[in-house]
Design a protein around this nucleic acid. Sequence first.
RNA 1: GGUCCCAUCGUCUAGUGGCCUAGGACGUGGCCCUCUCAAGGCUGAAACACGGGUUCGAACCCCGUUGGGACCGCCA
Length: 479
Amino acid sequence: MEKVRVRFAPSPTGHLHVGGARTALFNYLFARHNNGVFILRIEDTDRTRSTEEYIEAIIEGMKWLGLEWDEGPFRQTDRFGIYRDYVEKLVREGKAYRCYCSAEELEERRKLAMAIGKPLKYDGRCRNIEKIQDSRFRIQDRNPVVRFKMPQEGQTLVDDLIRGAVTFENSQLDDLIILRSDGTPTYNFTVVVDDVDMKITHIIRGDDHLNNTPKQIHIYRALGYEVPKFAHLPMILGADKTRLSKRHGATSVMAYQEMGYLPEALLNYLVKLGWAYGDQEIFSREELIKYFSFENVGKAAAVFNPEKLVWMNSQYIMNTSSEKLAGLVIPFLIRDSVISGDSELDAGWLSSAIDTLKERAKTLKELAHLLRYYIADEVEYDPKARDKFLNEKSLDLLIELKKSLEQVAVFSHGELEIAFKAIMENHGVKLGALAQPVRVAMTGGTESPGIFEVLGVMGKEKTLGRLEKAIKSIADQRA
RNA sequence: GGUCCCAUCGUCUAGUGGCCUAGGACGUGGCCCUCUCAAGGCUGAAACACGGGUUCGAACCCCGUUGGGACCGCCA
């Protein structure tokens, strides 16, 4: 069988967004599943809107997601000469023609057509203009565009891997512009030329291209090439069921990195938007590659649900090693000013701190935030928590605990528990009565990992210091 | 407006004619666990858009209706 070759072809007119990322992912999975080739191609024929920054941003996003491509990134602007040759060939063969209608005239006609309810289609008036030798336009010295001559009769079948057979009436197809008046080629033409040139076997792209497909098929035929297979993915929608856009919140992939999402989690969430494998929710990359198939891709558009993404991320955080998380969380700690850029944290200690927090943090950002009370020199008390737990009622308990802990050499769970138990028995109180004041003393708030774990991570010196501070604070209130 | 696509809980989905008194996941209610918060466990509410066929039998097949979406650019 022919080797599978697919491509992801974004236009650099914006960041890599989640919709694009999912398209890239499906291409990637299909390629890997079939031991094929995954190509990255930048569609930058729109020179007014494409920028170098966005090209870099897209590449950065792809790399962050770990969607490694095998060939490219190719850029269409590097290939303008090739397109022009193909256009000339079509014109020579009578399969394309020059059109002298101006953009303004076209716009007017479109408005008129819209007003009287006619299809918004080019009327073909320049189809035979060269033959009639109408010199009016040449006198005006207009630069013509080149239009592709679509067949006017019959039907075109798009045999889609996801949607099945879709038929279009050729009479509905427009004589589309393939070369602009400035001599640059347009999308519908360059995709075909590039896909032919790069020997693409399967075109996997968004649903929004389905209506372009019959036109492209005719270009393939005019050029004398075999038509590849198509797979049109359903769209990703916002909560209001319209096409996902900035209005719906973050759409840029890198924005999710900044919010503290793991790339694997984003990918796992995205793949489930439109693809399912029974009831399984969490997939390793290997499983994804192994199981991926268009048969399991749905046809209906899917609403992007940030809450499920958060859950997915929390699952991945819980199941990622604390050592790895330690490395990932550092930039967030710096950004949060929990540590300075040059401070040295003990990696082993940080990992053990993360051990206690990873099932409580849904994002790396949250993890960094939770870590602050372990790392900071000083705790700040939440006023409510202080009023409720750092008061006369707990003063004796804290004093006694401090005394007792001064005698404990290693802050192991077992040793700490013995110390706590003794005090609880002395005062006839339950663990809660002691643990909560200690928790506030240690973390400033009422929520934290188990109290023995917290003290264990904190260590003797910090624990004693914070108990002392809490005791002083209560004394100060009295005064 | 024209063309094309789509339609199972609020959301993502399983389901490919009998296994469906429709399963899972997120979210949501309750309970359990418990030093707090999580995590985890148990449990509840929650859907086949509608109408016609086809069939012994339809969430699944066909037609229509309704609803939603995409495209209709010298954007990609």
